[in-house]
Design a protein around this nucleic acid. Structure first.
Length: 809
RNA sequence: GCCGGUGUGAUGGAAUUGGUAGACGUAGCGGACUCAAAAUCCGCCGCUGGCGACAGCGUACCGGUUCGAGUCCGGUCACCGGCACCA
């Protein structure tokens, strides 16, 4: 019989679906559980990409292996379906986004099933489903009630093309992440979530997690904790200007101050500033620029001196000038700095341009030529009164203590992390369930009124004035205040796409619950996610946001664990044939459908796992796909041969045990490529030695997580299904015996002076004398030993022997 | 600039974490089968010299530790990813 992958795959997929093979989550809490999670897809109109297939296949292999290991496995899938592309498509084609979403989801589901993934299809979730976003809204209300959601007017990133407010995270290289349009700053009233309140915990709790290191460091850098001090400077205006500095030791070198253009004191000092017109012009100019434009002008510092107001350096009473400049950010620290040009590159550049004094306070450089910025033990303090002679390291605690004692400063920790801009002026998102009443202010919708369903609108177009498309819907907007019963208006902004994905893994645990986001029992049993694999691009967005929400839910007693994910791994990108990123314009996009049609899902799965190191980027190769098809053909043809013996054959026994060990360990370590290589090597052995039924049984079971369809078919054809009364995927994973992984004889390397000179076959675990004797008998070795005497022997059991020699006397 | 990572045959990539570098696959070459081709099966396949047995060299580059280094240490170069006027 020929390997008819199309018929085989159709047959088994149907059987798995009909028998709900993977929905058999038993609820038997005595069994160990395993929760494997992949990032649910955004159901775009383009359908599934090969980029999805890599992480999904990997976790499917893990899930299948875990089931065979006896775990109760939760391996779910869903759709993160709110978002701009759907909305844009809907606008362009005049189709309701819900309809677009429904069709795209249907297509995705078909493709996922075509690849044979063992998802539990009874637990599918969709973030746009009102029964789902009811709970997204519920979580938002809890955040609001705890004071973690607030509305504020702030300069925001405004995409001129999408006409939408973007989170800092959505601005990449100064342009909109999605459309590439120009981003400017605009003053807008926005809902914010206080993720900064959790900054310290988001760093601290990383320590206990099994996340790959680069994810941890990237999150830490993003949160950006730095320790320093806040210092109060008195001014000639009679008030106090507070700055944040990480270098309080350099306080004696502070020769001027800089405040951000948006700093409140600019307006406060209006009457004192004699050049206010210049100042005002500069502020206006800075306000127009986007963050990107401001940072682009790095080389050339700009600013204006505030004439009429001066600050007083608290350590020496010196009067120093104050400037405004956009190199100081209003959103970090206090929005004001003390400038120490001698020891900070940016201050130095500014000082050179504006002719400020440069005073050296740490020895070690020529501060007139460039800033000396090393903060280590070697720098000695000078020109600093009571700090003179101390090292920088010693001076910091001394000055900090002095500041505290004098009441002009204190130690302070700052974070780069900003609060999360949570509202979007868009239609296709979760409505924010709040009502504004002139008397009562912002009032949460009563929970029994959730979900607040998106109303039908005539137009999804964003409006030019930046309001949500929901805003013109007066009969929806106008409502009554849940608090006082008076007239009130609904919030018309919607939530960002990150909302629905911040907690979806909880919903999978109990997806049909209408009393809670999930039951206590389900949360207790399944939490936390044991293994979450996803893309590096989500490290500082989705992954951080969902950790934040989860910590909040933990604080209010909803979830049982502090952290949502025990283990986080990340896969590399799949590149096009030439090693370039796949894109429509390059014409190098590989469609999974085509591969499945031509070679079958099993080949697709095997290849995508064999393509290379899972964590690194890998280029697609059409030839290598054929190689994997050839491998499966060889496996199939092996099954068509005659086999006798239910045990492992003597010729293959060691190889089979070794392969079981290798494949088991490699799957656990995400080294899927070498697991498949080991199976290929085993098949080569079987071709050379012939295979027993026992040998074949082990091979089929080990291959089944990677290529499940062909394995089930062979399992059935060879009569194993009938004998066991089970499908291959329901069998126990084969076990290996360590002592049988090694043959009775081993080949050992023989080195002389550390140089390889030959090899020798000796019985397993031979002692040194035996090995040396055998080594001397090897021709090549004997020749090298002529006229030499052995002075030292290094013997590594079963590995090698190294003979150290010198000329004999 | 700061943080993280990578560098191995023509090529994708292996190497039990200091112990025979190049597993497995692709491409290539040779053979069997075939009228022929495809498919399949068998063999070869780091570089240099030699008919050959064999010898020398070889994991980006320079140096070090070690009986022994792709692996550890110091330095250099190149590339990739993240952050970036964060005081």
């Amino acid at each position: 019989m020929k390997y008819d992958f199309t018929a085989i795959e159709k047959k088994w997929q149907k059987k798995w679906m009909e028998e709900k093979t993977y929905a058999a989550v038993t609820g038997d809490t005595s069994r160990p559980k395993f929760y494997g999670l992949v990032e649910f897809p955004y159901p775009s109109g383009n359908g599934l990409h090969v980029g999805h297939a890599r992480p999904y296949t990997a976790m499917d292999v893990v899930a299948r292996k875990k089931r065979m290991d006896g775990y109760n496995v939760l391996f779910p899938i869903g759709y993160d379906a709110f978002g701009l592309p759907t909305e844009n498509f809907a606008i362009k084609n005049h189709i309701h986004p819900a309809k677009v979403t429904h069709d795209n989801v249907a297509n995705f589901r078909k493709q996922l099933q075509m690849l044979g993934y063992s998802f539990d299809w009874d637990r599918e979730v969709n973030t746009t489903d009102p029964s789902y976003y009811k709970w997204t809204q519920w979580i938002f209300l809890q955040l609001f009630k705890k004071g973690l959601a607030y509305k504020t007017s702030m300069p925001v990133n405004w995409c001129t093309s999408c006409k939408i407010v973007l989170a800092n995270e959505e601005v990449v290289d100064g342009v909109c992440e999605r459309c590439g349009g120009a981003v400017i700053r605009k003053e807008k009233s926005q809902w914010m979530l206080k993720i900064t309140e959790y900054a310290q915990r988001l760093i601290d709790d990383l320590d206990g997690l099994d996340f790959i290191e680069r994810v941890k460091t990237q999150q830490k850098n993003w949160i950006g904790r730095s320790t320093g001090a806040e210092v109060d400077f008195k001014t000639t205006a009679g008030d106090t200007l507070t700055v944040f500095t990480t270098r309080p030791d350099t306080l004696f070198g502070a020769t001027y101050m800089v405040i951000a253009p948006e700093h409140a004191y600019v307006k406060k000092w209006k009457d004192l500033i004699t050049n206010y017109a210049d100042v005002e012009a500069y502020v206006a100019e800075a306000g127009r620029k986007s963050d990107f434009e401001r940072t682009e002008l790095v080389k050339d510092k700009t600013g204006v001196r505030l004439e009429g107001v001066r600050a007083i350096n608290p350590v020496n009473g010196k009067e120093i000038p104050i400037f405004i400049s956009d190199y100081v950010l209003v959103s970090y620290g206090t929005g004001a700095i003390m400038a120490v040009p001698a020891h900070d590159t940016r201050d130095w550049e500014f000082a050179k341009k504006f002719g400020c004094e440069i005073i050296e306070v740490v020895q070690g450089g020529d501060v007139q030529k460039e800033a000396f910025t090393l903060k280590d033990d070697t720098g000695i303090m000078v020109n600093s009164d009571f700090l003179n002679g101390l090292t920088v390291k010693e001076a910091i605690p001394v000055i900090t203590k002095w500041l505290e004692k004098s009441g002009i400063g204190h130690e302070k920790v700052n974070f780069k992390l900003r609060d999360w801009v949570f509202s979007r002026q868009r239609y296709w998102g979760e409505p924010i369930p709040l009502v504004h009443c002139d008397k009562c202010g912002w009032v949460p919708l009563p929970e029994d009124q959730l979900p607040l369903v998106l109303p039908e609108v005539d137009s999804y177009e964003p409006t030019d004035n930046g309001e949500s498309p929901l805003a013109p819907m007066t009969d929806w907007v106008n409502t009554t205040c849940p608090c006082c019963g008076g007239p009130a208006k609904r919030e018309t902004d919607t939530m960002p796409q990150w909302a629905g994905s911040s907690w979806y893994f909880l919903r999978y645990m109990d997806p049909h619950n209408d009393k809670a986001l999930a039951s206590k029992e389900a949360l207790e049993y399944w939490s936390p996610v044991d293994w979450y694999n996803g893309g590096m691009e989500h490290t500082t967005l989705h992954l951080l946001y969902s950790r934040f929400w989860h910590k909040f839910l933990y604080d209010i007693g909803v979830v049982p664990t502090k952290e949502p994910y025990k283990k986080r791994t990340s896969h590399g990108m799949i590149l096009g044939e030439g090693g370039e990123k796949m894109s429509k314009s390059r014409g190098n996009v590989v469609n999974p459908n085509d591969i499945v049609d031509e070679y079958g899902a099993d080949t697709m799965r095997t290849y995508i796992m064999f393509i290379g190191d899972f964590e690194k980027a890998a280029a697609w190769s059409a030839n290598a796909v054929k190689g994997c098809k050839r491998f499966l053909d060889r496996v199939w043809n092996l099954g068509e041969m005659e086999h006798t013996g239910e045990d492992y054959s003597p010729a293959n026994e060691a190889a089979v045990h070794k392969a079981i060990k290798k494949v088991s360990e490699d799957i656990e370590a995400m080294k899927f490529n070498t697991a498949i290589a080991a199976l290929m090597a085993l098949v080569n052995d079987f071709y050379a030695n012939g295979a027993s039924r026992g040998d074949m049984k082990a091979l089929i079971l080990m291959l089944s997580p990677f290529a499940p369809h062909i394995c089930e078919e062979m399992w059935e054809n060879m009569g194993f299904a009938a004998a066991e009364g089970k499908m291959a995927c329901q069998m126990a994973w084969p076990v290996y015996d360590e002592s049988k992984t090694i043959a009775s004889e081993v080949e050992m390397a023989v080195q002389i002076q550390g140089k390889l000179r030959g090899s020798v076959k000796v019985p397993m675990d031979s002692d040194e004398a035996t090995v040396v004797a055998a080594a001397k008998a090897v021709d090549k070795v004997a020749r090298q030993l002529e006229g030499m005497e052995i002075v030292k022997v290094i013997h590594v059991k079963n590995k090698l022997v190294n003979l150290i020699v010198k000329p004999a006397k």
